[in-house]
Lab assay of single mutants.
Amino acid sequence: HMTFVALYDYVASGETDLSFKKGERLQIVNNTEGDWWLAHSLTTGRTGYISSNYVAPSD
């Protein structure tokens, strides 16, 4: 899985979204569905959809 880092804080707007904080590391589970990616937070252990605009590759 690809690992990304959050560029900004994000508060989930629905049950399927994932809230995260700036600097949080996220593993991308599925990024084939446009701008919203299914991600797993390595910080909180939660999984949900994130906006690809809010993250950048961590490598």
Score class of each variant (00 low, 15 high):
residue 1 H to L: 13
residue 1 H to A: 12
residue 3 T to M: 13
residue 3 T to N: 07
residue 3 T to A: 06
residue 4 F to H: 04
residue 5 V to N: 02
residue 5 V to K: 03
residue 6 A to F: 02
residue 6 A to G: 04
residue 6 A to E: 00
residue 8 Y to M: 11
residue 8 Y to C: 15
residue 8 Y to S: 07
residue 9 D to Y: 03
residue 9 D to H: 04
residue 10 Y to M: 05
residue 10 Y to E: 04
residue 12 A to Y: 03
residue 12 A to H: 04
residue 12 A to R: 04
residue 13 S to T: 14
residue 13 S to I: 14
residue 13 S to E: 12
residue 13 S to G: 08
residue 13 S to Y: 09
residue 14 G to Q: 13
residue 14 G to L: 11
residue 14 G to P: 02
residue 14 G to A: 13
residue 15 E to T: 12
residue 15 E to Q: 10
residue 15 E to Y: 08
residue 15 E to N: 10
residue 16 T to E: 12
residue 16 T to P: 05
residue 17 D to E: 15
residue 17 D to S: 08
residue 17 D to T: 08
residue 17 D to K: 12
residue 17 D to F: 15
residue 18 L to A: 04
residue 18 L to F: 07
residue 18 L to W: 03
residue 18 L to G: 01
residue 18 L to R: 01
residue 18 L to Q: 01
residue 19 S to E: 06
residue 19 S to D: 06
residue 20 F to W: 02
residue 20 F to P: 00
residue 20 F to K: 00
residue 20 F to D: 00
residue 20 F to C: 03
residue 21 K to R: 11
residue 21 K to W: 05
residue 21 K to L: 09
residue 21 K to I: 08
residue 22 K to C: 07
residue 23 G to L: 02
residue 23 G to E: 01
residue 24 E to Q: 02
residue 25 R to L: 15
residue 25 R to M: 15
residue 26 L to E: 00
residue 26 L to V: 05
residue 26 L to C: 04
residue 27 Q to K: 11
residue 28 I to N: 05
residue 28 I to R: 06
residue 29 V to T: 06
residue 29 V to Q: 07
residue 30 N to E: 11
residue 30 N to H: 10
residue 31 N to H: 11
residue 31 N to F: 15
residue 31 N to G: 14
residue 31 N to K: 14
residue 32 T to K: 12
residue 32 T to Q: 12
residue 32 T to R: 10
residue 32 T to P: 09
residue 33 E to I: 11
residue 33 E to Y: 11
residue 34 G to W: 06
residue 34 G to T: 09
residue 34 G to M: 07
residue 35 D to V: 10
residue 36 W to E: 05
residue 36 W to V: 12
residue 36 W to P: 13
residue 37 W to C: 04
residue 37 W to Q: 03
residue 38 L to A: 01
residue 38 L to Y: 09
residue 39 A to E: 00
residue 39 A to Q: 00
residue 39 A to K: 00
residue 39 A to S: 02
residue 39 A to C: 04
residue 40 H to R: 15
residue 41 S to N: 12
residue 41 S to G: 02
residue 42 L to H: 05
residue 42 L to E: 06
residue 42 L to W: 05
residue 42 L to V: 07
residue 42 L to A: 05
residue 43 T to R: 08
residue 43 T to D: 15
residue 44 T to K: 01
residue 44 T to D: 03
residue 45 G to I: 02
residue 45 G to S: 04
residue 45 G to K: 05
residue 46 R to A: 08
residue 46 R to W: 08
residue 46 R to C: 07
residue 46 R to K: 13
residue 47 T to L: 08
residue 47 T to H: 06
residue 47 T to I: 11
residue 47 T to Q: 08
residue 47 T to E: 06
residue 48 G to W: 04
residue 48 G to Q: 02
residue 48 G to I: 02
residue 48 G to S: 01
residue 49 Y to F: 11
residue 49 Y to E: 03
residue 49 Y to W: 14
residue 49 Y to D: 01
residue 49 Y to H: 05
residue 50 I to V: 13
residue 50 I to G: 00
residue 50 I to Y: 01
residue 50 I to K: 00
residue 50 I to Q: 00
residue 51 S to W: 15
residue 51 S to N: 15
residue 52 S to W: 07
residue 52 S to Y: 07
residue 52 S to H: 07
residue 53 N to P: 06
residue 53 N to K: 15
residue 53 N to D: 12
residue 53 N to I: 13
residue 55 V to A: 05
residue 55 V to Q: 03
residue 55 V to W: 05
residue 55 V to L: 09
residue 57 P to M: 10
residue 57 P to F: 11
residue 57 P to V: 10
residue 57 P to R: 10
residue 58 S to K: 07
residue 58 S to I: 15
residue 58 S to A: 14
residue 59 D to R: 09
residue 59 D to M: 12
